[in-house]
Computed example of a mutant assay.
Amino acid sequence: MSAFWKANQRRLAPWLFMAPGLAMFLLYVIIPIFQSIWVSFYDWDGLGDARWIGTANYVELIDDDAFYISLKNNVIWLVLYMLAVPAGLMIAIFLNQTISGMRLYKSLFFFPFVISQVVVGLMFSWFYAPNFGLFYNLLEWVTGSGTAILADDRYVTYGIIAAGLWPQIAYVMILYLTGLNNVAPDQVEAARLDGAKGWQMLWYVILPQLRPATFIAVVVTVIGALRSFDLVSIMTNGGPFGSSRVLSFYMYEQALSEYGYRMGYGAAIAVVLFAIMMLFISGFIWKMWRDETER
């Protein structure tokens, strides 16, 4: 055994270090994914006997108006949430400068990242609240009439997204600040000698070196947009009249709330959500890999 270890030590050592993490990933991520797919083919309340119904849950989704409202809201979340990436980049570039008071600015921009999503939801609920909310009073002062954002099905989704963008931009900013610390200064100096500045410097010199940070920022932003359960639950509980539902919240309603206890149907919604998430992330990984191989 010792002879085998000595002969293969360099090859086996990395796998031994990764083994605990891989075991946890298999146990808590990979296996539950396949279990959810399996449960989606059953009619099950989570307690009694499960009854095999094949693809009936997915067929029911096709005619479910609430599912389409949730899917539409998730698309809106996904599109608008991507604003966190350029916004976080711009703030990170600003905070990467060496000027007086920068530590204070960094603390102010970092602050939303350390706040719980529950607290963010409560803060923005008060911010939008009729009669005493700051946004409501400001809107009333500007336009002459206030709007209860969270009670209006036309604006409620956008109001919740705005609340989610606040900490998400802070998260992306931190990722880009870390990436900017790894930008090669010699390439920046060489570009300056060639006359590059402003947008040219950013586009041709800085951004190519920030690809790893951009990849992580896009992935976590996509995941954050598609799993937007907590803010919806805290701020509106899916209302008014189900207009602010997203797929993760609708999955919870069907599977675990007093309205449903339909674990199979909830699992089917979860599988659709997982497929959408993997579609976006896989597409971005493929693009990153293609760009790297073409270099």
Rank of each mutant, 00 (worst) to 15 (best):
S2R: 13
S2A: 05
K6S: 12
K6P: 10
A7H: 03
A7Q: 09
A13M: 14
W15I: 09
W15M: 11
F17I: 07
A19K: 11
G21K: 04
L26Y: 10
Y28K: 12
V29P: 09
F34V: 12
Q35A: 04
V39Y: 05
D43G: 09
A50L: 03
R51F: 02
R51S: 14
W52A: 08
I53F: 00
G54W: 02
G54F: 02
T55A: 13
T55E: 05
A56G: 07
E60P: 13
D63P: 04
D64Q: 11
A66D: 11
F67H: 01
F67C: 03
Y68R: 10
I76Y: 02
L80K: 04
L80M: 07
M82D: 00
A84Q: 00
P86D: 00
A87D: 01
A87S: 08
Q97Y: 05
M102I: 14
R103G: 11
L104C: 14
L108S: 15
F110N: 06
V114D: 13
V118K: 15
V120A: 10
L122N: 08
M123Q: 06
A129R: 15
P130V: 04
F132M: 12
F132G: 04
Y136A: 04
N137P: 11
N137G: 02
L139P: 04
L139I: 04
G146V: 05
A151P: 11
D152H: 09
V156Q: 03
Y171E: 03
Y171S: 04
M173D: 00
G179W: 00
L180N: 10
N181A: 10
V183Q: 05
P185W: 05
D186N: 05
V188I: 10
E189G: 00
A190M: 02
L193V: 08
L193H: 06
K197F: 07
W203Q: 06
I206G: 00
Q209V: 12
L210R: 06
R211L: 07
A213T: 03
V218H: 01
V220E: 03
T221G: 07
V222R: 00
V222M: 01
L226M: 15
S228R: 11
F229R: 11
V232W: 07
I234Y: 14
G239S: 06
G239P: 11
R245D: 07
R245G: 00
E253S: 11
L256A: 04
S257V: 06
Y259K: 14
G264W: 00
Y265T: 01
A270G: 14
F274R: 04
F274C: 15
M278K: 15
L279M: 13
F280S: 02
F280V: 14
G283H: 15
G283N: 15
I285S: 04
K287E: 08
K287W: 15
M288Y: 10
R290E: 10
R290W: 07
E294V: 12
E294D: 08
